[in-house]
Write a protein that binds this DNA or RNA. Structure first.
Lengths: 215, 215, 215, 215
DNA sequence: GATGAATGAGCGTTCATTCAT
DNA sequence: TATGAATGAACGCTCATTCAT
């Protein structure tokens, strides 16, 4: 399990008074609500009102924690990136390119799957909104991190010697599109999707084993 | 040169009077403004009033031409798809998979380049907006067409036998990301980008010729 | 048959050229459309656009004939009053008060019934709008005329000697309310309604014959 | 004195803080403004923005209290009906028809007079709008109540045996028209107007005492 | 005179944000 | 600090009216 969503322990690791406890809880309530709203409506359609409505807090309280929709979005994204950072760090160090690619893809896909599952699980059973978009700010942020890592690795010459910018772009494109498809299948098969994506990145369509079929 | 953006001549081949001319001009002004706004803000963030403001027309005038943001967006997208249709049609017929992929990518990249150039050219020199997203509705529509074509071809078993949904997704991801990068380089080198993308799709990073470098 | 709706003959009784013919027709088209619209939507909800839409004429053409919704409403009302004038005139002359009241009520009810029937008849069969209001400007104008006549007669001392303003108000109130109910029954029974209203005006509830029942 | 219009004391019997006071004041300001606007322009012509403008509040504030023109109208009408309910209740019980009619008319006229006086009084001296229609939602609601009562009584056979629908209509017509005239006289003489209306309903013009004259 | 597109004020409503409590 | 009503800019859209054709 790579990522776990924000919890009180993440933020309040020091002895705290009643007041701070409330502050932390409010902050978490806002973040949770925001994640849901962004995931359901998408960034543009989401409004601050949507978020505060879901927290049960007063409108003004939101602004004690974040100054705008942008800021709470960034906070979520940062959280995703922060949780992903250790995994990513280890990736940047090895010098086996194939292994690096595989590790990066696996890490990214696992993160996505975890996020997606925990996000879906949090929704009440009978309450299936029709307009779920499915990408949380965390996923977007982690994607950006993976993208940077791949670009760095390729630019640093750890991969084949070709147009490094295009190479990174291609790898990223594969990761994003195959990752999205992966989330739409049941069960979510991270390993299979990662195998596919890595094979595709390294060897293209022609290098794929002919037996692969959707599970 | 595959597509050329809408011009007065396309629509008003029989200009009879001033009234008709103004109508055509206004329609084009709205379409141009809408393309810009969608390109800069994205579909969700764009508002009808943004479009109106950029035309300099009165608010009510917009509604003489289109009933909503959706409708003007659809008009732009349809135009892109319409101009792209003939090229696409020829693509779907051959049965050489490699050739098909190459043709599809080349067609898509050429369309993007044309659109991008004409879009950029239409902007006044000193007026470089900072928030340009760069994807017009036309590009989005054409991308969707190419995506369908690739998915169809792969699902029809014209490519290697593997997980066809993932295969299509991977090819699409490469096309989109490499295409976007291509537009950011000067000069815009369609052939080189297409070579890269096709090589990547078919043979992956490892199959790339080692000499490719950004021009 | 007391009233007949406006016809070409009413307005254009002189030899006329083609152009005048058109002008008359347009004017009538506008008046007819306006009557329908006012009858269906009521004065407030009706818009100039509703009227011109129904004529098939251009928007600007309306303003060659009337300057506003108010003006075309007034024209319809005037027409009603004009057609009703002769009947009313004869009423004002006799000196038998009971007879005057009966004649006034009968004339008013007959006018209403005619208008209502011809207005209903003009609507296409399958096209029963749900929001019909049922009072045309003509009816309103004729009602105002009858009101004046009754007020004049009572103020002139032709009726019982009491508070003449209240007397007229009471008579008017009866005429309006009973008249409206009359229009809602099928068949529309003018004579019976008039009998009732006259009896009520002259002798009150206690003077009514006990056998009267809705037909 | 039957009704008295809404006052702070009615609603805020336990004023706790400034917030609550302001809320009550705003609600009343909106209701007062709405009553004026409806009285002057009529329900159809009145707009939410007319009401807002007259309160001096911001546009959005209206929607903190009422969701629409319909809702604020209903609030006013409900208030009228609510204040009138006890009087009406007692009316429905007796079985002396003449007494019932008198009581109903008196109650209605007294309510109208109170409303009218308090409404006029609330207007600044120099500010006599020309377009006053004079019927507030409260009056309309109470009129509707009286109408129901009379229709019920007559339909129940408590009056003379004749066409009960027409009978009720006639009585209602008298009440409305005579009541309106009453409001235009100074001083407003409720008893005299009621005497007149009752006499008229029961015995018609011919049964009126000959000495009645406007005071 | 007829046309019908252009105009811009105005409508109902929502929203991010502020600030007195 | 939390509250939640007040604010007013902005939105999508309609309308009466004008005026070049």
């Amino acid at each position: 399990m790579i990522g776990c969503s924000i919890s009180v322990a993440d933020v309040a690791y020091l002895p705290i008074g009643k007041r701070e406890q409330t502050k932390v809880q409010n902050r978490l309530a806002i973040l949770d609500a925001a994640r849901e709203v962004f995931g359901e409506l998408g960034y543009e359609a989401a409004t601050v009102r949507d978020i505060i409505r879901r927290t049960g807090l007063a409108a003004g309280t939101f602004y004690n924690y974040y100054r705008s929709k942008e800021e709470v979005f960034a906070a979520l994204a940062d959280d995703g990136a922060r949780r992903f950072a250790p995994i990513l760090k280890s990736l940047r160090q090895g010098d086996d390119f194939d292994g690096f690619v595989r590790a990066a893809i696996v890490a990214y896909f696992e993160f996505m799957a975890d996020e997606h599952i925990s996000w879906m699980a949090r929704r009440p059973a009978g309450e299936q909104q029709p307009h779920v978009q499915g990408e949380t700010p965390e996923m977007a942020a982690v994607f950006a991190e993976v993208k940077d890592a791949i670009e760095d690795a390729i630019a640093a010459g750890r991969g084949p010697a070709s147009d490094s910018e295009y190479m990174a772009a291609a790898a990223i494109g594969i990761a994003r599109e195959v990752g999205d498809k992966m989330l739409m299948r049941r069960p979510i098969a991270v390993a299979a999707a990662a195998d596919f994506a890595v094979g595709m990145i390294l060897n293209g369509l022609k290098g794929l084993p002919s037996g692969m079929r959707p599970s």
